[in-house]
Design a protein around this nucleic acid. Structure first.
Length: 508
RNA sequence: CGGGGCGUAGCGCAGCCUGGUAGCGCGCUUGAAUGGGGUUCAAGAAGUCGUGGGUUCAAAUCCCACCGCCCCGACCA
């Protein structure tokens, strides 16, 4: 194989997708596994992504009337018990604090001491503790709606973890709201779902289907669970965000009541909704290629890297000065109201290695500056949405003028590429045989990338869903919201009439 | 929690079966060549061989116990 055809990431996506994913994270220096089981360390390049996600979403939440607050990490064990389904859903994955002190034993080892009267659970989610506070704060219909959000870390003791997609501890935001009517709460749940879908589309350049979960996939304790489902490049579905209409369930559990205009005591209607650091995993698996991470410009920690090309000491100061000026001028450019983030990479290392390190980090634009560019007042530009070796010379002034437009074009290209991929791998399927064929790899020992989203008529229940899972390893990802009118059809499993199609896929 | 595997330099591994001076690749440090690309050469630093016990003149190697991690199943943002 010639050097010019070498890719930066081994193995390739098609060779071993799961391993490719790990290698992309490593090569981009986003995160690494920590000494703590199932927990990762998010490194600066990865954390900056989260900070950008957070900055944008936080502004969107505030625009829709929400305020931030912070609730405790610890939840009294008894709180979790208040909502029956909630307990059942989370009990198996709770980290429990049972002691509040360490002592040295006779052999000099630290051992827990000072048992707690009531153990504390490290929050897997905060409905119960927030509900307890809502109960105090809400007395009158005038206190409603109460629209809060919390940025926090939570812990779920999962069996198997994967960086960003499922870690024992993860960061997220959880919105919690209380309303005077069911309709208003439902509207809130749907509004926040749409907000997530818009964020995925406009910032992550990731198409996502808005839909509702079936009963068996519902959040424990919710009346309705809504989801945005995105297709990864291995054609599996990833739940990228959720929004729940909780009905009166948590209000009853936590005694969140208010007096309405007629002076009648009523339970509040609550919602909760969240996205997590999983979004970073979603972004990686939506856009990255066999040369590593590809970042959508609107969330990239840096937009442009300037790579000085210096191979003679005589040109050093001249090239560096040109680079510094270029950096300064670029930093004055605003990209969607945010100043351009510009890196000037002055590390003493070989140019090729340096360039590839930025390709692997997914930075949208690379600008190489050598004596030739200085002389010609130009820049040598590489874009991450094009092959790494494909670069073009551009007059300096034109580049500065167009840089925002170029970034927008990259953003658009990434979205369109992802959307085309999703369409290409989405199929309407009307027989169980075809569904089986769709989800059966040719090589059973080492399955190749196959399947995708199957749109099928469905009128089954939990038992039929169980059958799908057992026989084909797939599940109903959601009942899409966007084609409410739908077309009448026949359920693929039961043969019963069905008012609309559902999305069936393998899932993370 | 059931089944399998692995712990040896920062990372990835060989050595163990058949006990006898601690090895390789990458990375790191230094020097040189190269210079619009992931390069090459040379020199160097770095290891209580997971922990504890046993067998032995001698243990990374054989035996026992423990600890940790990874993979495969049931659970999940």
């Amino acid at each position: 194989m010639s050097a010019s055809r070498k890719n930066a990431i081994t193995p390739s996506r098609s060779k071993d997708y799961a391993e490719w994913y790990q290698q992309v994270i490593k090569a981009a220096d986003l995160a690494e596994l920590s000494p703590v089981r199932g927990c990762m360390v998010i490194k600066p390049w990865g954390y900056a992504l989260w900070e950008n996600i957070r900055r944008v979403l936080d502004a969107m939440f505030k625009e829709t009337g929400h305020r931030n607050a912070y609730f405790p990490l610890f939840i009294p064990l008894g709180f979790l018990q208040k909502e029956a389904e909630h307990v059942e859903g989370f009990a198996k994955e709770c980290a429990v604090v049972t002691h509040h002190r360490l002592e040295l034993d006779s052999e000099g080892r630290l051992v827990p001491a000072g048992p707690l009267e009531e153990p504390l659970v490290v929050r897997p989610t905060s409905e119960t503790i927030i509900g307890a506070m809502f109960a105090k704060w809400i007395q009158s219909y005038r206190d409603l709606p109460l629209l809060l959000n919390q940025w926090a870390n939570v812990v779920r003791w999962e069996m198997r973890t994967r960086m960003f997609l499922r870690t024992t501890e993860f960061m997220w935001q959880e919105g919690h709201t209380a309303h005077a009517s069911a309709a208003e709460a439902m509207e809130e749940a749907r509004r926040m779902l749409a907000l997530y879908a818009g964020f995925a589309r406009d910032y992550m350049a990731m198409p996502a289907i808005q839909g509702e979960k079936t009963e068996s996939e519902r959040f424990p304790g919710a009346v309705n669970t809504f989801t945005i489902e995105a297709m990864m490049q291995d054609r599996k579905a990833l739940q990228a965000g959720t929004s729940h209409f909780l009905g009166e369930n948590f209000a009853r559990a936590s005694e969140i009541t208010f007096l309405d205009q007629e002076g009648k005591r009523r339970y509040a209607w609550t919602t909760s909704w969240g996205v997590s650091t999983r979004l970073i995993g979603a972004m990686i698996m939506t856009h990255s290629d066999d040369d590593g991470l590809v970042l959508p410009p609107r969330l990239a920690p840096a937009h442009v890297v300037i790579l000085p090309v210096i191979h003679k000491d005589e040109v050093r100061s001249q090239v560096m000065e040109y680079c510094r000026q270029l950096a300064a001028r670029l930093r004055e450019v605003r990209f969607h109201d945010v100043p351009l983030e510009v890196e000037l990479d002055t590390r003493e290392m070989r140019g090729g290695e340096k360039m590839w390190s930025w390709v692997k980090k997914g930075i949208p634009l690379r600008v190489e500056i050598g004596p030739r560019d200085v002389a010609a007042e130009s820049v040598f530009l590489g874009r991450r949405d094009r092959p790494a070796r494909e670069r073009e010379s551009l007059p300096l002034a034109a580049f500065i003028e167009q840089v925002g437009a170029i970034l927008d074009e990259i953003q658009k290209n990434l979205y369109e590429r992802a959307d085309a991929f999703r369409r290409r791998n989405t199929r309407e399927i009307d027989s169980y045989d075809e569904l089986r064929e769709f989800f059966t790899p040719e090589n059973r020992q080492k399955p190749e990338i196959h399947g995708g989203f199957a749109l099928c008529h469905w009128a089954g229940g939990a038992a039929e869903e169980e059958r799908l899972k057992n026989e084909l390893g797939v599940s109903i990802r959601c009942i899409p919201l966007d084609d409410e009118e739908g077309e009448q059809g026949t359920c693929i499993l039961t043969g019963k009439p069905s008012p609309r199609r559902v999305v069936i896929a393998k899932a993370y």
